[in-house]
Simulated scan of single mutants.
Amino acid sequence: MNSKTEIPEWLLNNGELGMCPCGCIGKRKKVSFLEKTVNDIAKLLKEVIFFEDIAYEKGFLQKLDPRVKIISLLILILTTTLLHNVLILTIIYLLSCILAKISYLSLKLYFRRIWMIIPLFTGLMVLPSIFNFVRPGNSLISLINFGHQLHLGPFAFPAELTITKQGVTGAILLIVRVGVAVSLAFLFTSTTRFSNLLKAFRVLFLPKVFITILEMCYRYIFMLLNITTDMFVARKSRTFGKIDSKEGRRFVSNSIGSLFGKSYTLSEEVYSAMLSRAYKGEPIIINRFKFTLLDFQWLLFLIICVLAAFGGEIILG
């Protein structure tokens, strides 16, 4: 995808204000779901273009061989999942923040992209584990005392519902572990061009057809998004007045059919173009991977950090 593609600023606005630009006078106009769709697509395209620009920077991680980054990411994620000490996991995250800084990735974006979402979803999954009927242990907070043991079918619940120390500790550990692992994955993938990332996957001996499918999906999904955006903008530019919900649903259903026809035609054209260019199932990019001294130094530093992390966990218990 062309990194110089520009998204019109008016597509990124969430809505229009009333009589006053600050919104303190008048009412904000209600944005239809069609406009919301255009806004969401435009924001997605803007984010993709932004991360492509990061991958083209001259930072530290951008200079590493993509194959080395894939191996490093696997080692770090495996290390993160095996560690049980929150302090050591926090130190690993702080080191990743340093890597993000020297790789020209905004720390604000790096933090907000992960920690505004991961604690919410992971916390919802591990919420039951903080109670004593899932994970018994030392009581921290007593919630309800039923006075006797409760039975619900084959399940038995204790007489007192409490939040246990072991449950809270395990929940915090899982949230931190998931957050650090996802942060590392985000860091390494955002600093690598997607085409190089796919080619580097061959170091894991993934099938060619799997990599080809990923490459085609990533490349042409944005083309379909552009087509969808053009359809919505063309509709809006030819419409006067408010569109009722019934008319909007009719337009969406017609657009889905039209988009399916265009995507089918596009797939046939792409297949013919690939055959005419003697495509043999192997993704070909101009960049050639080369293992350098910097890659060797990084792997050596990574191994030392991993051994220090496991050693620190043994010492701290």
Rank of each mutant, 00 (worst) to 15 (best):
R193P: 11
G147I: 12
C217F: 08
V134I: 15
T79V: 07
D40P: 00
R288A: 06
P158E: 02
T169A: 03
L300Q: 05
L214Y: 05
L11G: 03
I102C: 13
V168F: 10
V168L: 15
F157Y: 15
F251H: 14
F301E: 08
N85R: 11
L11M: 13
L302P: 14
L225I: 11
I70P: 03
L99Q: 01
S106A: 04
L161D: 13
F210I: 13
I91H: 07
K63Y: 03
I41H: 00
D65E: 03
I285E: 03
W10N: 13
L316T: 00
R202P: 02
K27N: 14
G59S: 10
I163R: 08
I213N: 10
L316R: 07
K27Y: 11
T37Q: 13
Y110W: 05
N226D: 11
L87W: 10
L259W: 06
I102Y: 06
S142K: 15
F50K: 10
A200D: 05
D53I: 03
G261Q: 06
I163P: 03
L11E: 12
I227Q: 12
Y104A: 12
S195F: 09
L300T: 13
R277V: 02
S258L: 14
N13T: 08
E47M: 05
F289N: 04
T81Y: 12
I92T: 06
L64V: 00
I71L: 13
N132Q: 02
C305N: 02
T265F: 12
G167P: 07
D295W: 02
I54M: 08
L300V: 11
C20F: 07
K108A: 09
Y110H: 09
L127E: 05
A309Y: 07
K69V: 04
I25S: 04
S183R: 07
D53Q: 10
L107H: 07
Y93V: 13
I172H: 03
A171E: 14
L173A: 06
K236V: 15
M216Q: 09
L300D: 00
L78H: 08
C305R: 01
S245M: 15
R112V: 00
W10T: 08
I75S: 03
L152P: 00
T228C: 05
V31Y: 08
M274L: 14
P8E: 01
L94T: 15
S106V: 10
N132I: 05
S96C: 13
I75V: 15
V233H: 06
V180W: 04
W115P: 15
E57H: 11
T265K: 13
L61I: 04
Y220I: 06
G18D: 06
W298A: 09
K36H: 13
K30F: 09
N14T: 09
L224Y: 04
S267C: 05
E52R: 14
M1G: 13
I163D: 08
R219L: 14
P207Y: 09
I71Y: 03
L174F: 13
L120C: 08
H84G: 12
L73V: 02
S258V: 06
N287F: 01
R235C: 03
A181P: 04
